[in-house]
Amino acid sequence: MDWMKISLYDNASPIMEQLILFHDYSMLIISTILSVVSFFMIKMMSNKFISSKILENQMIELIWTLIPTIILSFIALPSLHLLYLMDELNNPLLTVKIIGHQWYWSYEYNDFNSIEFDSYMSSSSTFRLLEVDNSTPIPSNCQTRLITTSSDVLHSWTIPPMGIKMDATPGRLNQISLFSNRTGKFFGQCSEICGANHSFMPIVVDVIPITYFISWIKTFN
């Protein structure tokens, strides 16, 4: 048992880095509150002072309303900040269209020449239920726009180490931005129950340096 199995994945994008930092930060606040509250509860149960005559105390009411408000705003503001940051798309260099089907993903790159391929689960024993026959190349350190849609039912396209999860809805195009600052092979699985083979439509993204990506495009000329 190592920490990797209970904590979050190592981040592969600046957004995920911020999400992990925010998770750790809010856990810090939560555990502080938990310790302070349990300390006072035990303390109050174990002593003999009883304030049975107190009927009203405006000051203490004010304090125990204001302090939680301030603490909550310290969680809410960075949370909202991140939420809006995740929706932001700065000058994308590439658009990848992701189409969910029952039960496989297909990808379209149309910025240069038309590249279109399907991505089915492959029967590999290295990473069971995670490997695909055609993985999705994405250039590293490059603002990429992902457009997700579906041709039949709801699906959801997910890459946890990049902090990306976007529903694929039929008749609608959903946009999310991707910026990966780590090269490598990243796995994900369909995250919206979509039928019998929902578990068997994995996602594999190959983040590669931009020069390799361009040579990959050129192979389609």
Binding site: D87, L94, D111, C142, I147, L173, Q175
Partner: peptide, 16 residues
């Protein structure tokens, strides 16, 4: 590498 730019008429997730 060039793609459709950000269009301020459509700032949301829904790009349909």
């Amino acid at each position: 590498l060039e793609t459709a730019p950000f269009d301020p008429r459509f700032p949301n997730t829904n790009q349909t």
